[in-house]
Simulated scan of single mutants.
Amino acid sequence: MPKAVQREFGFALHLAQIGTRHPGAKVLKGFGSAGVLEVVEDFATDTYRAVYTVRFSEAVFVLHCFKKKSTKGSETPKPDMELIRKRLDDARRLAERA
């Protein structure tokens, strides 16, 4: 992942930690609430995404960061959505233990 993209994602996560939202952050569809967000960054001819959750007061959990490879418009590919769901469940379990 290019350094410029990493910096922007890091800034978005910092804002989430202090209780605000990155201007480019939007709710990821399919999760029922504003608790799962994504930031999309373009670099050269590629698109990168960072998906995180602010559902738990204990921490901001990064669920997935990836280079979008799908040619189906802006839709998040099904394997990535499944991985995000699994990691959200893992985050929920971790938050319950804290």
Rank of each mutant, 00 (worst) to 15 (best):
Q6S: 10
R7D: 12
L37R: 00
G32H: 10
G35V: 08
V60D: 00
S33Y: 02
F43M: 06
D80M: 11
K26W: 04
A59K: 13
E58V: 11
F61K: 02
G24L: 06
P23V: 05
M1T: 08
A25E: 03
F56P: 00
G35M: 03
L83T: 10
A12Y: 00
G35D: 06
L83Q: 11
R85A: 12
M81S: 10
I84K: 00
K26Y: 01
K68E: 01
M81E: 05
M1G: 08
T76P: 11
K72W: 05
R93E: 09
C65R: 09
F11Q: 13
L83S: 12
E75K: 14
K29S: 13
T47Y: 09
G30D: 08
F56Y: 14
R7W: 05
L88H: 01
V39F: 08
T47P: 00
D42H: 14
G30N: 09
T76H: 02
P77G: 04
V40W: 08
K72R: 15
M1V: 03
F31P: 00
R55N: 10
A4K: 07
A25R: 01
F61Y: 15
S33G: 13
F43I: 05
A59I: 01
V27K: 11
V39L: 12
L13V: 10
R97I: 05
A4N: 07
G35E: 13
L63H: 02
Q17V: 08
T53E: 07
R7P: 00
V40A: 02
D42G: 13
V27W: 12
Q17D: 10
T53A: 01
A98T: 09
A95W: 03
L83K: 14
R93M: 14
Q17F: 04
V54W: 00
R21E: 13
V62Y: 08
T45V: 13
K26E: 15
R97F: 12
H64G: 02
F61L: 11
E38D: 07
A25I: 06
D46H: 10
V5T: 02
C65T: 14
C65M: 14
E82D: 15
L94W: 05
L37C: 06
P79W: 15
T71P: 01
F9S: 01
E41M: 10
A34I: 09
Q17I: 08
H64C: 08
R93I: 06
R87S: 05
A44N: 12
Y48K: 03
F31S: 10
L63T: 02
V27Q: 15
A16Y: 00
E96T: 05
P79R: 15
T53L: 01
V36D: 08
F56W: 11
G24R: 07
E58H: 04
A4P: 03
F43R: 12
V40K: 12
K68N: 07
P23S: 13
G10K: 03
L83M: 15
K67N: 06
C65W: 06
L83G: 07
V36I: 11
E82W: 04
A98F: 15
V40L: 04
K68G: 01
M1D: 02
R97T: 11
H14N: 12
D42M: 14
P79M: 14
R85T: 12
L15F: 08
R21G: 04
K3F: 12
I18Y: 07
R87Y: 03
A91M: 07
